[in-house]
Design a protein around this nucleic acid. Structure first.
Lengths: 366, 366
DNA sequence: AGTTAGCACTCTCACTCGCCGATTGCTAAT
DNA sequence: ATTAGCAATCGGCGAGTGAGAGTGCTAACT
């Protein structure tokens, strides 16, 4: 009947994948999850037999439900309520039962168009992407900007803003501009800035950013001495040295969407999630681990690193710049989320970003 | 001197200031507002006589409360509850009764330090300011960046990012950098860019940005023809023409603070405010009108332009760049807010910004 | 042996009722 | 003009109740 996708994901949590259930159980579990995701109400045997043509009686369904409950795939909110999927139930559904969803051409185009609308600034691309994703999914979306390190130096501009401030704009081969204003303790000399940047642009052309050492910069700026902290700052931007990595900014949006979800009617839960957003560390970590994997990754309930997220699920996906994973986006919503749809959306988003970071390169090189 | 104003129903938005109340009423009204702001519980006659030494009996207090109620300064949530201030009550309190609060030196320093920590980028200064303010007040803080128009041209840099994209960095006499990436329909020529920016930098030096017309730019770029849309884009940044004004970005933060406020336990109200934040228009308008006034301005409940804000109050204040109001910051919280403290905080913030936008100028000119 | 109908049981939800406490407004006394 | 005393009013809270939904069990059926 239904073709079962191979299960090679979900290894992450060190748990062996669940054994395969027999056909009837499979079908019932799938239907319960589907129905619960659709309605948000605990699913009972009557609902199942009435709304879905299972070919068996409520009594039989009840027996199977009890069994699935015992095995940990389903849970009962209280004795006389229907069943609700447990983490394990969702996991089985996501790994084996869910039918992949395809987006309409309109949706694909919308995402692609929105991503393309973003300017060439590094940060705003990602900011925009997370914003689009959050409105489209009516969930929280979050993202980190691509690492620069695998991109290639094209141009740098050092603009004197004041005696002690320099605005740095770095342009990479992919047509992305990263920028930042640096303050210096000693005054900067406009002439020195110009000579240094000319030197940089002449000699660093084509280098991978990760390979540009601070010593190289120092050497190139030798003729035109620059304040040490300025050089260190530039080096940090260029090669993303050390601390730049932890400070990498997280873009998140769509928190207000949680208000619509019935599972967040409890203000304390809402608050816990908002605090998590504020703190950023946990979400950042999720995206970071996502960089290792290849495609979309789903984390359900307790699988997530924070106890406050035990009623949430997260879908993350990395995107590439060039041929390496350079950044990632994620969606955070209630466990009762439309997994298939969100995965389709986030896949599309990743594709669009990959394309953008690739397409720009060729366009810019032309 | 016991004047008894007999205007029964609280005249809706009659701008005329309320008549002065007699001493005892004044004292009672002030105490009720003070107590209610502190506790959030409706205030009854017993509480008043017990916690505050008024020198009169509960019965007398009751008579006065009834009178203040009739005149529209107080309201009763329900028949057998204590009194709660009405918009008019808060207004009287803010205008006449409230004792100005002074910040501790630590608080002043904290604000100043945080504002100074922001870089020289136009947007990030304001973003930072609103963030600081929101954490300090545990409310929503919002702000708009200063208009460039009254600042003076110092330098422009046009950086080619790709065939069809140029990154523009504009530096003003105040040491602020505004930037933006523009896309063009026709390809841009690196050489033309360089010549044009040299021309700009040579001839526009010292001009007020508002005075730089697109014709002037066209003339200066004449020798090195630039795509028309690029010139228009530059002109928009430089002189903030037309549409740039409505697009002026609003920085807001601290929405999660609302969760602590008991008046937002109702999810619908919370949602209404979050939608307002999302929409930006209303808050923007508030800041915009604040530009006309000199100091901090308080808007209470129904005085605010949106019905959704009828249970909120807003404090706004403009800040100056040079000698003109150029931007504004605001705080949004429940009507039951610590007016005196928030006004002190926002005054301090405005002072810090004024100082920053002044101090930078001299430092940068040196 | 697996499946099914019937049934008693359990539990939540929504609703009502009545009491308690808080606070008022009124009236009569000071 | 102020105050004490008092009846009246109303929201909030907990207990009580009935309806409804869903289960698990058992015995009968194929």
């Amino acid at each position: 009947m239904t073709r079962k996708p191979k299960n090679n994901a979900a290894k992450a949590k060190a748990q062996a994948a669940d054994p395969e259930l027999d056909r009837r159980k499979t079908s019932i579990l799938g239907t319960v999850v589907y129905e619960y995701i659709a309605t948000g109400e605990p699913v009972g045997s009557a609902t199942l037999t009435q709304k879905y043509n299972l070919g068996i009686s409520p009594a039989t369904v009840r027996a199977e439900l009890a069994s699935l409950d015992e095995e940990g795939y389903l849970e009962q909110p209280h004795t006389s309520a229907g069943r609700v999927p447990s983490d394990r139930g969702y996991r089985y559904y996501v790994d084996r039962l869910m039918l992949p969803e395809t987006l309409t051409p309109e949706e694909r185009d919308r995402i692609r168009a929105e991503v393309r609308r973003a300017t060439h600034q590094l940060d705003s691309v990602v900011d925009h992407a997370s914003h689009v994703l959050s409105t489209l999914t009516r969930s929280i979306a979050f993202a980190i900007a691509p690492r620069l390190s695998s991109q290639v130096y094209r141009h740098i501009e050092l603009i004197r803003i004041g005696d002690h401030a320099v605005h740095v704009v770095l342009v990479t081969d992919l047509g992305l501009a990263a920028q930042c204003t640096l303050e210096t303790t000693t005054p900067v000399n406009a002439d020195a800035l110009l000579r240094a940047s000319n030197n940089f642009n002449e000699h660093l052309q084509g280098s991978r950013l990760a390979d540009i050492s601070i010593e190289a910069l120092e050497r190139l700026a030798d003729a035109a001495p620059l304040p040490g902290d300025l050089l260190r700052g530039i080096s940090t931007i260029v090669a993303e040295h050390a601390d730049a990595d932890v400070e990498r900014r997280l873009f998140a949006g769509g928190a207000h969407n949680l208000l619509d979800q019935q599972e967040f009617r409890d203000l304390r839960k809402l608050r816990a999630i908002l605090d998590l957003l504020e703190e950023q560390q946990t979400l950042y970590q999720l995206l970071h681990t996502s960089l290792q994997s290849a495609g979309a990754r789903v984390s359900i309930g307790r699988e997530l690193p924070s106890i406050d997220m035990s009623e949430c699920s997260v879908v993350t996906i990395p995107y590439r710049v060039g041929d390496r994973n350079a950044g990632a986006v994620g969606i955070l919503g209630p466990r009762r989320m439309q997994y298939a749809r969100l995965i389709a959306l986030i896949n599309c988003m990743a594709d669009s970003l990959n394309e953008l970071f690739h397409g720009e390169a060729s366009a810019a090189n032309g």
